[in-house]
Nucleic acid binder design. Structure first.
Lengths: 164, 164
DNA sequence: ATACATGCAAACATTTTGCTTTGGC
DNA sequence: GCCAAAGCAAAATGTTTGCATGTAT
């Protein structure tokens, strides 16, 4: 049940730039540049992968932050459209920093829960425009996940009982 | 927060056929044709739309069933691949009966939570094959959702200073 | 008669809120 | 000093399990 997305943490400078941009946007909304906010943004920018609130509070640099604090920070980030929510069929919700120009779709093993990035070019963006045009929706984005049984789990599939 | 999928309940005969097929598959797995199972399948076949466990237990015909019973039935249906789970960014998980040949993607308003069907031809199926081939996954399916702000909510959006 | 299915209640995990204290501006 | 942020703790919500009883086979 571990997330193993294949994301390269960005270069330190990119990370700092990203953090600064986020802070700037948040400050314009009246938020303060607090120690917790900075630590959280820095982590999410450097490890651009889906994480639950529990995942985040287990991170070394965020361990001093209360879960309620992390929760409230993430909610604020989400309100500012800096963070997006992902439903990956686990009990807890996953969150991920929005990095302009980066979009990722995921491949999840329904047996072991492993989460991988899908590198294929995603053909869905044109549909977003169509939805805006035809349905009158604004701020449209999509979420695409593939579910299946990964090679490692395949032999042990309940429906295809392999005798070990 | 109401689901308003635009699904035509199937014809009664189709519904019965679907239910019979499900029961048959389940029986082969050792499940019994209980009253609760039949009521649940019948409802999910006739109202082929995403529903939470709470939604289901509020249904007239299922009101006599305990939530734990509904939970266990739905889990069994999911194990048998007769039901799929959907993460629509709400706290509760949505479930939907799998109807062979029918696939639906959804459009969710991030403001009011309204859930609509997307009627566009979904270009993702070829990718499923690619994933099976290139990543060695089996039993691959996808889940695609669009999120955005619906026309009704658009004017009242807190942080979208309409740049029309 | 046996084993699965159910109801009821309790345990659990996660999310959300209230209130007091701390800290950024 | 003012108001947002954080810490702590508790409430709210949804999911899961245990156990005694009912029911399909």
């Amino acid at each position: 049940m571990k997330a193993t997305a294949c994301h390269h943490p960005q270069q330190p400078q990119e990370v700092n730039l990203l953090v600064e941009n986020c802070v700037a946007k948040l400050r314009s909304r009246g938020l303060r540049r607090s120690q917790g906010l900075e630590a959280l943004l820095h982590h999410m920018a450097a490890h651009h992968r889906p994480a639950t609130l529990a995942d985040l509070s287990r991170v070394q640099d965020l361990a001093s932050l209360d879960q309620a604090t992390i929760y409230r920070l993430v909610m604020k980030l989400e309100s500012a459209s800096l963070v997006r929510r992902l439903g990956l069929h686990e009990r807890a919700t996953y969150f991920q920093l929005v990095v302009p120009g980066h979009h990722h779709d995921y491949l999840v093993c329904t047996s072991c829960g492993k989460i991988e990035d899908v590198e294929l070019t995603c053909p869905v963006e044109p549909l977003e425009r169509e939805i805006m045009a035809r349905r009158g929706y604004s701020h449209v984005y999509h979420e695409l996940e593939f579910f299946g049984i990964c090679p490692a789990c395949a032999p042990a599939t309940p429906e295809a009982p392999a005798i070990l």
